Simulated scan of single mutants.
Amino acid sequence: MQSQPINEVKGLLLEELDHIAKTSSNLIRKISTDHWSYRPHDNMRTLLELVQHIVSIPSVDLLILQENDETVIRKLEADIAADQDHEKLIAWLTTGLHEVRAYMESLPDEDFLHKKTKPFYLEHGSVQAKWLIEITTHIQHHRAQMFTYLKIQGYEVNMFDLY
């Protein structure tokens, strides 16, 4: 059974995730491939690695929350890491978002609120609602990193690129 308040909260989180993906895609399209190798510090990702990570978040996090094993997840990450084309990278993001949306919308309220799944790297699990929050905040965090990378590189970006 689906309740209106739970569907509203789920819908708001999915709407925010869509917005973050849209603004991330717009930022990715601004990047010159000449800057793919930019790395602000030795212990940080390059801009290309950061973009590849961002676009992988929905699909990879979905595989993790569905309790796939590490080899399946690493294979997807390697497939994404093989792409350097802006539109192909954005397609990974779009596909992942559709998969997350379909999964979350298919969950009955009881599962969304109470079904725990455990990632391969932790001893404890989280409920599906928490996973949706995690996916949303995870991609938002890295979008902010990308925004900062672009600012440092002199790109014309501002808060309107995020809202």
Rank of each mutant, 00 (worst) to 15 (best):
S37W: 13
E16S: 15
L65M: 11
H86V: 03
A91T: 11
E87K: 00
E105G: 10
A129I: 11
T33R: 11
L162Q: 06
I139L: 05
E77L: 03
H141P: 09
A102W: 01
T71R: 09
I57R: 03
Y163W: 08
S37H: 12
L113F: 07
V51C: 06
I139P: 04
K151F: 08
N7V: 11
H98A: 15
Y103Q: 03
N68H: 10
L89V: 04
L122V: 14
I90E: 00
T46W: 03
F160H: 05
T148W: 01
E49T: 07
A78K: 01
Q4F: 10
T95G: 10
M1S: 13
E16N: 15
S3M: 08
T148F: 01
Q145C: 15
H53D: 04
T117K: 01
L50H: 15
H114F: 07
A81W: 09
H114N: 09
T95S: 13
K115N: 08
T94V: 15
D42H: 10
Y163G: 08
L132D: 13
H138E: 15
R39M: 04
E67W: 05
L76W: 02
Y155G: 05
E49D: 07
E134G: 13
A78F: 00
P40W: 03
L150F: 09
Q128K: 04
E49H: 03
S32D: 10
D161N: 06
I31Y: 04
M44G: 13
E134P: 05
N26R: 05
K75T: 11
F112A: 01
D83S: 01
N26M: 11
T117V: 06
F147Q: 02
R101C: 07
L93F: 02
E70Q: 07
E134H: 09
N26W: 01
H141C: 11
K22Q: 10
F112D: 00
Q2F: 10
P119N: 04
R39F: 02
Y38K: 03
D79V: 00
L150G: 05
K118R: 07
M104V: 14
M1R: 14
L89T: 01
V72W: 01
